[in-house]
Amino acid sequence: MGPLYTVPENIQKENTVEKKLAHLDKIKRTFFVYRVDAGSCNGCDIEIFAVISPLWDPERLGFKLVASPRHADILVCTGSVTRDMRYPLLRAYEAMPDPKIVAAVGACGCSGGIFHDAYGNWGGIDSHIPVDLYVPGCPPHPATILEGFALALGIIDQKLKKTVHDNDDGKVPFDGTSILNNSLFERDIYVESKSLMGYIHGRVLYKKYCGAMKTAKKPDDVSEVTELMKYLVAQEEDPRYAECLRVLHNNVYMQWLDRMMIMGDEGKNQYLIKGA
């Protein structure tokens, strides 16, 4: 697919980076914003309205929403360009006075986002008109959008830079140590933690459990570990973690002792931790 729209020469001449920067420098005080929804799911637009609310109050920075692109300094575009909204977008762009500053808000605006390979979707804003400010997020947090405006006006500096890591030494993040001298034990704990609490909390649970196990002098000594876990469960403030730590001990750890032939079924009951 070739370029769908070439920016006319007279517009190109008036829109060099130097001219844009000079313009942004000049509009430090009040900037007029015109908003185009080029086919978004409305998530981004709602966040833009959240920005305009008193909680964030962008008028401190000079933000002013206008009703016509002819008054606008900044064109804020949301959404990936759909076939129907492409022409209105181009019209708004051409109607803006030069130099034109265009901001793409949301993953859709920046690159097509989640809809990038959908039918009827013609890519991000920047595959049609030149974009100057990218505000990623789906939808972006109001703070991100506000930061974008502040960045354009030169109030704050850009934080991110293109990063390339290319110093591979083949080292891996695993040192071969394991609590019960068998990394399959950790795997079982990890799998059970994730299935109990999901990946975010499960990971915390896993770290809690393994962190405590590492402090045990003899991790295969059932009475010591049971005391340790009882203490950990009693100390835990969040009842969800307490319950799941108990399950990990009663199910996974006991099963492993059985498997390693340290302890069979008999006498097991006294080491199970009872629920509250």
Partner: peptide
């Protein structure tokens, strides 16, 4: 959440 960039999306 601070991740806006100017001009170069790379």
């Amino acid at each position: 959440y601070v991740m806006c960039v100017l001009f170069d999306k790379e």
